[in-house]
Deep mutational scan, measured.
Amino acid sequence: IDVRFTVNGLDVTVRVRTEEIAERVKELAKNGVDWREIQRIAEELNK
């Protein structure tokens, strides 16, 4: 599942395995978490 969001004007796409992880990623993006941090968290959750 590809999750797309915009952080500080940057369009970011993170690929995740499940809808649940996708929701977590969207939540982080909404809360203004840095995209590199979101990427790292997504990689952890995908394991």
Rank of each mutant, 00 (worst) to 15 (best):
N46C: 03
V14P: 00
N8M: 06
G9T: 03
N46M: 04
Q39C: 10
E19F: 06
R40T: 10
E44G: 09
V14K: 00
T18A: 03
E43A: 11
T13V: 15
F5Y: 04
R40Q: 12
A22H: 04
K26I: 15
R24F: 12
E44Q: 11
R4S: 14
N8T: 04
I21G: 04
R17C: 07
K26W: 04
T13Y: 04
V33T: 12
R4K: 15
A22M: 07
A29G: 06
E19Q: 12
R15F: 04
R40F: 09
V12I: 15
D11I: 15
T6L: 13
A22Q: 04
R24M: 14
F5W: 06
L45D: 04
K26A: 11
V33G: 05
A29Q: 07
W35N: 03
L28G: 01
A29V: 15
N46D: 08
E43D: 13
E44V: 09
I38L: 08
Q39R: 10
T6W: 05
E44M: 09
G9M: 03
R24C: 10
E23F: 08
N31E: 13
E43V: 09
I21W: 02
R40G: 07
V25H: 00
I1C: 05
A29I: 15
F5R: 02
E27S: 11
R17L: 15
E37R: 02
I41L: 10
V3W: 00
K30N: 12
V33I: 13
N46P: 03
L28S: 03
I38Q: 00
A29K: 04
V12F: 13
D34R: 06
L10V: 14
G9C: 06
D2P: 03
A42N: 01
L45W: 10
R4V: 15
E37Q: 06
I38R: 00
G32Q: 09
R40C: 09
A29Y: 15
V7Q: 15
R15D: 03
R36N: 15
W35A: 11
R15E: 07
T13D: 04
E27K: 08
F5G: 05
G9E: 10
R36K: 14
D11H: 14
G32E: 09
N46L: 03
W35T: 08
L28R: 01
I1A: 03
I1H: 08
R40L: 13
T18D: 09
I38V: 08
K30G: 09
V25F: 01
L28N: 01
R40Y: 10
E23K: 12
R15H: 15
V12K: 05
Q39F: 12
K26G: 06
E44S: 10
D34H: 09
L10N: 11
L45I: 04
R4N: 15
N8P: 03
E43N: 11
N8V: 04
I41P: 00
R24A: 12
I21F: 07
D11R: 05
V16G: 01
K26N: 08
N31Q: 15
L28Y: 04
I41V: 11
E27P: 00
V3Q: 01
E20Q: 13
E43F: 03
N46S: 07
V16P: 00
I21H: 10
E27L: 08
L28H: 05
V12T: 04
T6V: 15
L10C: 09
G9H: 04
K47V: 13
R17F: 10
E23M: 11
V3F: 03
V25M: 08
E23V: 14
D11F: 07
V14F: 04
A29M: 11
A22D: 00
I38T: 01
R36H: 15
D34F: 05
K26D: 03
E20Y: 06
R40E: 10
G9I: 01
K30L: 11
L10T: 14
N8F: 01
E27V: 08
I1Q: 05
R15Y: 03
T18F: 03
N31S: 14
Q39H: 08
E19V: 14
N46T: 04
D34L: 05
G9V: 01
D2W: 06
E37M: 03
Q39I: 15
K47T: 12
V12G: 02
G32I: 07
A22P: 00
L28M: 12
E43W: 02
V25Y: 00
R36S: 14
R36A: 15
D34Q: 07
R17N: 14
Q39A: 12
R15C: 10
A22K: 06
F5T: 09
R24W: 09
K26R: 15
E19K: 10
E37N: 06
K47E: 12
V3C: 06
A42C: 06
T18Q: 02
V12H: 10
A29W: 14
I21R: 01
T6P: 13
E20N: 09
R4P: 04
T18S: 12
R17Y: 10
K30S: 12
A42Y: 05
L45N: 03
I41H: 06
E23A: 12
K26P: 00
N46A: 05
L45Y: 07
V14C: 05
E37P: 01
K30Y: 09
R17S: 13
